[in-house]
């Protein structure tokens, strides 16, 4: 039996995404990470060394669970079996934060595409996503944080832009916002927009967590596309955008994500240290 403990609170500090190559470092010695976030789907196995490692580490570090497969944007509704798996996982791990994406990855025929695919921000989509969020929040018995996606294309048919759509979702479902600052930057540049513009309309009062990560720049016939590959250090403009976001939200838990070309743990911890510096420069939330 796993003992049930109170959900450890994630402080307004920088945490890191826990990735498999760093498990040995964490198991060998305590690491200077204020909190950890894992991809929920990586820990759904019945057993094995990874699950065992997380069971141990959750006792030493506050934990956040970041789902990458619930597919809140699926027109066909949620996969009930997956919802039940996640419910059991969260019941067992008691994470301080639980998040998902404003995106879809499961097609109507059930195929799982392993990517966060884009949604048209229409009334139909709002109804679909709000119903799915309500169902998930009910199943998990807790507030779900929704992350703004990185996008590479836009649909003509739209009743809202992304910021207003997220505000509408937060209003209708009571969900929180996981504001991914890198995604904000990547999407804005990919659509020729100002990354600061959405900050006036996003539901910033609902922000409970912030993500930062590196992105790649790819040349195309029509200029550069930014790709959200989490494969490098956080870019300079994203740090600046983080400072602008924190100035409005006040200090929040900030997570550094690094998923491809994963560096040695000290490199990742140094990024977190830098995020902590930005947090220390911020006064508490205005008002």
């Amino acid at each position: 039996m796993i003992e049930t403990r109170n959900r450890a609170v994630v402080a307004n500090r920088a945490g890191i995404g826990l990735r498999h190559p760093h498990l040995p470092d964490f198991l060998a010695a305590p690491q200077p990470a204020a909190w950890l976030e894992v991809h929920s789907e990586n820990y759904l196995a019945s057993g094995g060394p990874r699950v065992a490692a997380l069971e141990r580490l959750r006792g030493d570090y506050p934990l956040s669970c970041h789902g990458v497969g619930l597919s809140l944007g699926s027109a066909g509704g949620l996969d009930r079996a997956h919802l039940a798996r996640l419910r059991e996982l969260y019941h067992r791990l008691e994470p301080a934060l639980v998040s998902e994406h404003l995106a879809w990855s499961i097609a109507p025929d059930g195929a799982f595409l392993a990517d966060l695919l884009p949604l048209p921000y229409t009334r139909e989509t709002l109804d679909v996503v709000a119903a799915n969020i309500n169902l998930a929040q009910e199943a998990f018995g807790r507030r779900l944080l929704i992350e703004n996606p990185s996008t590479y294309l836009q649909f003509s048919e739209a009743d809202w832009d992304e910021a207003d759509f997220l505000a509408e979702l937060a209003h209708r479902t009571g969900c929180g916002l996981l504001l991914d600052v890198n995604n904000l930057y990547v999407s804005a540049l990919n659509h020729g927009a100002d990354p600061l513009a959405p900050l006036d309309r996003l539901p910033l009062a609902a922000v409970e967590e912030i993500h930062i990560a590196g992105h790649a720049r790819v040349a195309t016939a029509f200029g550069e596309l930014l790709i959200d590959d989490h494969g490098s250090a956080v870019a300079g403009p994203v740090w600046q955008l983080l400072a602008a976001v924190l100035a409005r939200t006040g200090p929040k838990p900030v997570l550094v994500e690094w998923d491809t070309h994963i560096p040695a743990l000290p490199v990742l911890l140094a990024e977190a240290e830098r995020a902590d510096f930005y947090l220390s420069e911020v006064k508490h939330a205005p008002g």
Binding site: L113, A114, P118, F155, A158, A221, I227
Partner: peptide, 23 residues
């Protein structure tokens, strides 16, 4: 269905195709 200029659409969609295949 996309708002992006027609000559950019295939390339923008290709980012998702690459992501799915790579994953």
């Amino acid at each position: 269905l996309l708002a992006d200029p027609s000559e950019q659409r295939e390339r923008r969609l290709a980012v998702y195709r690459n992501n799915v295949r790579h994953a």
